[in-house]
Design a binder for these strands. Sequence first.
DNA 1: GTGTATACGTACCGGTCAGTAACATTGTCA
DNA 2: TGACAATGTTACTGACCGGTACGTATACAC
Lengths: 198, 198
Amino acid sequence: MKKAVEPSAERPVRAADRIRASASELFYREGIRAVGVDEVVERAGVTKPSLYRSFASKDELAAAYMRDYEANFWEKFEKPGGKSYSDAREHVLAYIRVLSANAVAEGYRGCGLTNATVEYPSRDNPARQVAEAHKKLFRRRLRELAGSMGARHPAVLGDALLLLIEGIYVTGQQSEDGPAQSALTVAKLLIDASVAKG
Amino acid sequence: MKKAVEPSAERPVRAADRIRASASELFYREGIRAVGVDEVVERAGVTKPSLYRSFASKDELAAAYMRDYEANFWEKFEKPGGKSYSDAREHVLAYIRVLSANAVAEGYRGCGLTNATVEYPSRDNPARQVAEAHKKLFRRRLRELAGSMGARHPAVLGDALLLLIEGIYVTGQQSEDGPAQSALTVAKLLIDASVAKG
DNA sequence: GTGTATACGTACCGGTCAGTAACATTGTCA
DNA sequence: TGACAATGTTACTGACCGGTACGTATACAC
């Protein structure tokens, strides 16, 4: 008589996964430097050696957090509000609409990848490297979308949108009543002024 | 026979001042959390008790750094490139011109006040409080300038400029080859599209 | 049953952190 | 000379940090 039912319906849930989840939550909310590995494992309900079996160091755990964050970011960016968009302008505006709504909520903490580059000025930090690579990709994607909108200078409009979005990320953490409120209007202004009319 | 010449040309330089200077440099370059008080006093050429005679805690030292940074900021903002401007549009564009030039330099670290709010999510941190108060003032000042430019909606243009500027601060630390390059063009676009023409 | 591999916990390490106590030294002014 | 204020010197604390040596429980193979 073996296990009867449920081969593994109750999930054991690997320690490494619990740690990733715990780290993601804590690192995002409080910052990477502010959170010790003890706090991470305690919240995960595991012990420290389990962490170091799956991750070489706290820095590498932070890098894993960055990769998880990035995957999640792309999902939210490519389907803002869970919806797909064929029109580039509507796509970007939808993302900014959702983003700026979140950014005026209490406790908003901006973009985890951006925050990590602020926390780690040194270029050889593993977490920072993931973040930097992501921001390059994001910039390219925004230029692409700007091109699809028919911008006269897609590079400029793409950069404009990136600057605007990063501005939302960071000002959103400064106060609940910040300039992110105006972001959607600004985005429209920017796009319309950049797209050839006649 | 007293001191002959130079009442104090060779400056004794108060320990507190040396500490402020040392802290400002280190906190800005490496981040506040990343720098220990030992490093601050060592660079200042003083000892730890001297620090704690002038500052109640590291947090309070960080708050002092914020205040110093802010004073310096206003100087640079109100006279970009050392020059005064009577025209609001030229004033803002001059600031953004200088800023974006700095932002593409290697080792650029953005705005110390912005960075501090990223490092300290908790609202009761003394340094963060200084930074938050400053950002409120800055927002008001930009709206004021937007009004002087004759914007149809000064609040929107002011916010647009703030989002843009914060975007420059933060993307400037992500890479030397970032969107800050386009910032001046974007600023002109934004202003021209916001100012009533006919 | 007895290997053997995997997954995990207990207990600990040395270092660094912010902060302090007690005392010695200096320079200034009167 | 004497008093005061500012600083340096030395040594220390307790908490926390990232990281690890080592023992333990379970499961599957033969």
